[in-house]
Design a protein around this nucleic acid. Structure first.
Length: 287
DNA sequence: TTCCAGGGGTAGA
DNA sequence: TCTACCCATGGA
């Protein structure tokens, strides 16, 4: 199955744009530049998908996925932010000596899950913990709750599958700690209809409204909401976390202790591309 | 032991 | 609107 690609798209740069590719059900093979994922796909249940990009995007699977072409197209578009027009951001990068490399390399697309639900859950798993524990929590959820494909690989659970677990199970088996009620509240809210993700992530909303909308989700605060916005391709808000603070303090303030507001002010000139302005600096620093 | 990590919810001011 | 405090977990 093939899909057209926009010019300048790079699969490895998009995949490794941040840590998401280390969280199951993503599997990334750096050598062959192949991204794999196990997806719940309608009547097929859990199926393995393998994604490569040369001149176009190629998706292959051991199952007959042809009837699901439109659905796969929608999911890959979200996952790789294929709809995102980065020209205005790259234009700003070209104007700054410090960021020319960002435009030349085509950086700016972030790897996302194939659904807002999965991204929201994973963002909850990143809060107030180490990255190693986030990875472990995601592994536990996929291992203990995810549906198994014929290969043995497992998919990320659906809202219904997570809603059917319990607080005790998510704490004891998945080691979520106090995050358990947030994840459960999110899943159960979707199932009982009190949370409508389609309505909450209404693409017609202006960005500040969407930011407030995401903050209604359990366990999603200012950091999580800004992160979810970036995954919707909106970069007006910066997700301020300990990594942002330590990076900006070191790069722009000689290690001095300054307020979050002062740190965010550094990126004011980026307009609607503030988060990518910061994120691209982090990306350049990490090679 | 104590601290704290890619924060968020809540009560009280 | 702002601040202080609590929240599970596990590595340093």
């Amino acid at each position: 199955m093939h899909f057209a690609l926009t010019q300048g798209f790079s699969l490895p740069k998009t995949v490794t744009s941040h840590g998401w590719y280390r969280l199951p059900p993503f599997r990334w093979d750096e050598k062959s530049e192949t991204l794999s994922r196990t997806e719940l796909l309608g009547s097929l249940g859990a199926v393995d998908l393998t994604i490569r990009a040369r001149k176009r995007l190629t998706v292959s699977s051991p199952e007959n996925i042809a009837p699901f072409r439109d659905e796969i197209d929608r999911r890959l578009t979200r996952m790789l932010q294929l709809h995102l027009d980065l020209e205005a951001f790259h234009k700003q990068c070209r104007r700054r000596k410090s960021h020319r490399e960002v435009a030349e390399e085509g950086f700016g697309r972030l790897l996302c899950a194939t659904s807002l639900f999965e991204d929201a859950v994973k963002i909850i798993l990143t809060t107030n913990t180490t990255w190693g524990q986030t990875v472990r929590m995601a592994e536990n959820i996929v291992e203990h709750v995810g549906e198994k494909a014929p290969s043995g690989n497992k998919a990320f659970p659906s809202p219904a599958q997570l809603a059917a677990t319990s607080d005790g199970f998510l704490r004891e088996k998945c080691r979520l700690g106090y995050r358990a009620p947030y994840v459960l509240g999110l899943a159960r809210g979707i199932i009982d209809g009190t949370l409508d993700l389609g309505q909450i992530a209404d693409t017609e909303m202006d960005t500040p409204t969407l930011y407030k909308s995401f903050r209604q989700l359990p366990g999603i605060g200012p950091y999580g909401s800004a992160h979810l916005l970036a995954m919707e391709g909106r970069h007006d808000f910066i997700a301020v976390d300990t990594e942002f603070r330590s990076f900006v303090r070191g790069k722009h303030f000689n290690g001095r202790d300054v307020s979050d507001e002062q740190m965010q002010r550094i990126y004011r000139g980026w307009g609607r591309w503030k988060y990518l302005g910061y994120w691209s600096e982090l990306w350049m620093e990490n090679g």
